[in-house]
Design a protein around this nucleic acid. Structure first.
Lengths: 196, 196
DNA sequence: CCTACCGATCGGTAGG
DNA sequence: CCTACCGATCGGTAGG
């Protein structure tokens, strides 16, 4: 029997997507089975296919939702009147908030994108490369204007992006550190260092 | 016929281990099949089992080899007469060198450890938690002695470890940046910041 | 080191 | 949304 996906099912699809993000993060895209996902959602595995087209569709929806949020925020920052330090600080804070508020989805976009099928894989990589280049441009401008030290802009972007990504390991220790303290300390560290 | 692993096969096992690290990194532990590994090594899949016990054995050998190298270097640094900034700088440089010189194995230990079987999984996690705690102790000492800013030591360790891990994304861009420039710029960034 | 082959599990479909 | 079931692929073994 043909699959029918009336608009009223949108909410059920969102439940599936959220469960998929949690499961793909915990087990990895390949190790996560549709039977596990079905159990998390509360149906039998074949019933999932009334709401979604395939396992890989779940992955690319999650990855591009996150990619688009990052791209949108970057455009706003580029068009803002902030100096390059201000733009960098704003970006670091945005990344930290994404890591804290959409931890599962961001984790999947960061780690499991390599299992995207074409043409989504190429698309995703292009979007990410473009994002990184635009960050490098901001840092380059800062170096030229002497607002920033004369470091390699690409290394600086890599350091910042990677440091913030590391918040995926935070989970269990969160009790001791407030979101505000975390955000401020990391901004300080990445802009001003830790040496006194 | 029983499997026999004479000492003279050690070299073939090393070939398998190196190929496994490359393959597990490129495809992920679960997605990587023993048939692909066999092809990379140049034999049929069942022949691999003359040299190894199982697929999961390959994973835990790789993970613990790397874990032991990091633990050994940390012990040396702890016993050195350096001040806390010197110890931190030494550690950052060691991590960077591991990322550059054993990229595949470090990648697997960083990303695929979650597919370790028990008791290796618990063992690995304990070793990593202990490593992190010892890093936090070094930073804590630096804060107390006023050698470092009054940041949260745990956040500082997370920032440093994550930033250095990010070098796994470097690969293709390496042409423009020498290992020395990379190492020095990242050390500067993580100790002194980028703001002028 | 190979050929032949196993039981298990996978993503997904048929049909209702 | 379910039961029943498919073809493909997996890690690994038997036997030589």
């Amino acid at each position: 029997m043909a699959k029918i996906k009336p608009a009223k099912n949108a909410s059920k699809k969102e439940v599936i997507l959220k469960s998929a993000a949690v499961l793909f993060r915990a087990r990895g895209f390949n190790a996560a089975s549709m039977r596990e996902l079905a159990e998390a959602v509360g149906v039998e595995a074949p019933s999932l296919y009334n709401h979604i087209g395939s396992k890989s569709e779940l992955l690319h929806i999650i990855c591009f939702k996150i990619a688009n949020e990052f791209t949108g925020q970057l455009a706003e920052i580029e068009n803002s009147p902030l100096d390059t330090i201000g733009k960098t600080e704003n970006l670091i804070r945005f990344h930290i908030n994404m890591m804290l508020n959409q931890a599962d989805e961001v984790f999947v976009a960061n780690h499991e994108w390599k299992y995207l099928a074409e043409p989504f894989l190429s698309n995703f990589l292009n979007q990410r490369r473009s994002y990184e280049k635009r960050l490098v441009s901001i840092i380059e401008e800062g170096v030229q204007k002497k607002e920033l030290k004369g470091i390699n802009p690409y290394v600086a972007v890599l350091t910042i992006l990677s440091a913030v990504r590391g918040l995926e390991f935070l989970q269990r220790h969160k009790k001791n550190i407030s979101a505000t303290e975390l955000e401020n300390d990391m901004v300080t560290h990445l802009l001003k260092g830790i040496a006194k």
